[in-house]
Amino acid sequence: MTMRLVAAELVDSRQILPGQWLQSFHAPELASGARAGQFVHVRTGDYSGLVLRRPFSINTADAATGIITLHFRTVGRGTEWMTRVREGEKLDMLGPLGRPFEVDPRSHHLLLIAGGLGMAGVRMLADEAIRDGRSVTVLFGAANAGHVYPSSLLPDEVEYVVATDDGSMGHHGFVTELMADYEAWADQAFACGPHPMLKRLAALAAGRRERMGVAKLGRRGGGKTDATGSAAARRKSFLQVAMEQTMGCAVGACLGCTVIGVDGPLRVCREGPVFAAEEISWEAIQ
């Protein structure tokens, strides 16, 4: 679906965690065309005095009701402004933008790994996977129990495993430490969260095929290789990551939101926000 400018009406807004909000918007054009991993670029009101739009992952999209949800943390004036928008008001959204997660049709077990607000990046993929009959495990990491994403907001079919930095809930440590228990089970993994977390996951995922003795399917010699960054290449990748970057235009014009890839700069808004882990030059990521 091509991007468009949409007037999205706020229908519900609530604080689900300290400083974290879940807002529902009636935007049928976005709800029917969006795929997991894509995002919208939201304009704050003219009277906000802010000159840039704010990018948000599409947290969920329901084509039947025309509702999309956004999950965000108040980090500055733009997001604070959004929490004060009242029901019935319309926000100017540009979307859906970016390239989605690519699930291999042969993958039955999907591992979703989210750090904090990274849940918003992978949340919709859980819906899509369950709709398609796949089993989903979500690994979630937060600072403490008070910041753990409520399980009531996840589909019932999902296995939900939590890690907290202070051990106040679930595993005591980083969410990346849970990866070892699940990497054999998972056919593919999809992650969103702070860059150090993604970097660690990429390191853990590297060489997995050999370590696990995963058979290479297809012809001897490997057949044709897909171009790096193509949807086909991403579909074959074990780990896909949704990256964040400060953003200007969100349509690929300003080159502001790049991350460093192995073949040069990659625009998070156009080539991303989802990348195969192999596309990213992790040494350059802090």
Binding site: G248, C254, C257
Partner: peptide, 13 residues
């Protein structure tokens, strides 16, 4: 290839 990220940030006005 351009500069290292981040490359943009908002400022007052």
């Amino acid at each position: 290839a351009g500069n290292a990220p981040p490359r943009v940030t908002e400022t007052p006005g």
